[in-house]
Design a protein around this nucleic acid. Structure first.
Length: 446
RNA sequence: GUGGUUGUAGCUCAGUUGGUUAGAGCGCCUGAUUGUGGUUCAGGAGGUCGUCGGUUCGAGACCGAUCUUCCACCCCA
């Protein structure tokens, strides 16, 4: 049998793990600087927790876990006969793998509300699973790094998240554009254009504007049975770039005006301190997850062909599905795997990641091997990442090992070194070598 | 979910209309060099051609199923 991974999943080898930890650690330190604490939730949730939160499309992508034991016992003969897979899954499966970190978080908050001091700021770095067809930057198992605040509707937090995005991607050296919109503005546009009933159709179509152009969007809107008059109106509104003018145009829509107000407030917060990344208003930004109700964000890497590498928004009512009413939350998710691919493409991983071991001891014979093994201890004691080749093999072989493992220093120990106590330290990059005592070398390498 | 695409040595890939014993480069191992890697030279090991089944005197090649890869749509991180 030829081994291979299950669809849409990958192994992470040592170097890849080191690179991933670099991403996680970079983000973690920023998250905690802003006062967020980590939590973790199980990979498996009840299906009742997960279904109905992501829209029909999302529900279909949920991985369901078969019940233990005789899972056919509770399936009705009728459903089996009719091959009614939806009813059958309901009886055969009561759990599923988490689809994102936000919904399990909402469950967590509702369940633990008595222990939580609101506003609650948490971050969470864990894998999620989606039964999508895999593609580049698109996997069935991938990691999300979520930062969320619940229990406050202050727009200060929207601005804070923008700042975290800016700082996070700056630390990772990825140039980005942050796109900002507000679902209420989209609602307003739908109202003014008279298509409230087709809100989702409208947003899905205009979300593609930068991809398929105005003509394509017109076609898409027409296909979705939106009246020509409304289409004209929608494009008229979308062409307005300045907030005050859009405010005027949306005058008849209360919710639209609220959305504009919110955006203005967010920008006021953001502008209190200079920010490096481009933050742009984009009324066409829609985002698919239908639990968003206010501001929405999306981040694109500049100069790389890749879907969005981060996204999020405000959700006013997610916890009410779990019985906790009137709790507003806002959060963003960093897509770790896509960030990984972008860093790889831009060649922006720091080179230090590739050097895990700093020095390799090389022994010439059995006696010096034991001596080297004893010396190894002192390097580790001094917190220097050190290793010893497991046997006194040919020097060439040991050198090659150090070379292939990217180990920058080698110490050669043979009979004469043991006698004099002067060890041979070789710099693998320059090829230079000097004789020093153990203590001297340790001091040099620390 | 719809329509395509890919799979041959550890890696990247050749392999004519079906016809002897399946190739190359890189990597790996050994030696030139018994205490010096990343260069050079010589030699060597390594493949039930993704899997299962079918057609055929004969299949890496043709057909079917299945798994996997990548792509477009859909959606999204």
């Amino acid at each position: 049998m030829k081994p291979s991974n299950a669809k849409g999943t990958r192994d992470y080898s040592a170097l890849q793990v080191a690179k991933r930890y670099y991403i996680f650690d970079t983000l973690k330190s920023i998250f905690s600087k802003y006062g967020f604490c980590p939590i973790e939730t199980p990979a498996v949730e009840k299906l009742s927790t997960l279904t109905g939160k992501y829209g029909e499309e999302g529900d279909q992508l949920l991985f369901k876990v078969l019940n233990n034991g005789d899972f056919l016992k509770s399936v009705k003969d009728e459903d089996l006969q009719n091959r009614d897979y939806k009813k059958m899954t309901h009886d055969m499966s009561s759990r599923g793998l988490r689809y994102d970190l936000t919904v399990p978080f909402a469950r967590y908050v509702s369940q633990h509300q008595s222990e939580i001091q609101f506003p609650f700021k948490r971050y969470q770095i864990q894998p999620v699973w989606r039964g999508d067809r895999p593609q580049k930057g698109r996997y069935q198992e991938f990691y999300q790094c979520d930062v969320d605040v619940v229990g406050s509707d202050s727009l200060m937090y929207e601005a804070e998240l923008v700042r975290i995005l800016d700082e996070g991607f700056r630390a990772l050296q990825i140039p980005i554009v942050i796109k900002l919109n507000n679902r209420k503005v989209l609602n307003g546009i739908a109202e003014v254009a008279g298509v409230q009933d087709q809100f989702t159709d409208m947003t899905v179509a205009i979300d593609k504007l930068d991809k398929i152009g105005q003509e394509g969007v017109e076609k898409e809107l027409t296909k979705r049975n939106i009246a020509p008059d409304s289409i004209t109106k929608i494009f008229e509104l979308l062409s307005i770039k300045e907030l005050p003018k859009l405010k005027e145009a949306l005058g008849s829509s209360e919710v639209g005006l609220k959305g504009i107000d919110e955006l203005e407030t967010v920008f006021n917060y953001i502008n209190l301190q200079p920010i490096e990344s481009t933050v742009e208003l984009d009324y066409t930004l829609a985002r698919g997850l239908n639990y968003y109700t206010g501001c929405i964000f999306e981040v694109k890497a500049v100069g790389v062909e890749m879907g969005s590498i981060s996204g999020g928004g405000r959700y006013d009512d997610l916890t009410s599905a779990f019985g906790l009413k009137n709790i507003s939350g806002v959060g963003i998710s960093f897509g770790a795997d896509r960030i990984f691919d972008v860093l790889e493409e831009l060649n922006k991983f720091p080179s230090r990641i590739e050097k895990s071991t700093k020095v390799l001891l090389i022994a010439m014979d059995d006696k010096s091997h034991l001596f080297a093994y004893k010396s190894l201890h002192y390097f580790r004691e001094a917190n220097i990442s050190a290793d010893l080749y497991p046997e006194p093999a040919k020097m060439k072989k040991q050198m090659k090992y150090a070379n292939n493992k990217n180990i920058p220093f080698v110490i050669i120990i043979g009979e004469s070194e043991m006698e004099t106590g002067m060890l041979m330290l070789k710099n693998m990059e320059t090829g230079m070598q000097v004789q020093s005592t153990l203590g001297e070398i340790i001091r040099k390498l620390s």
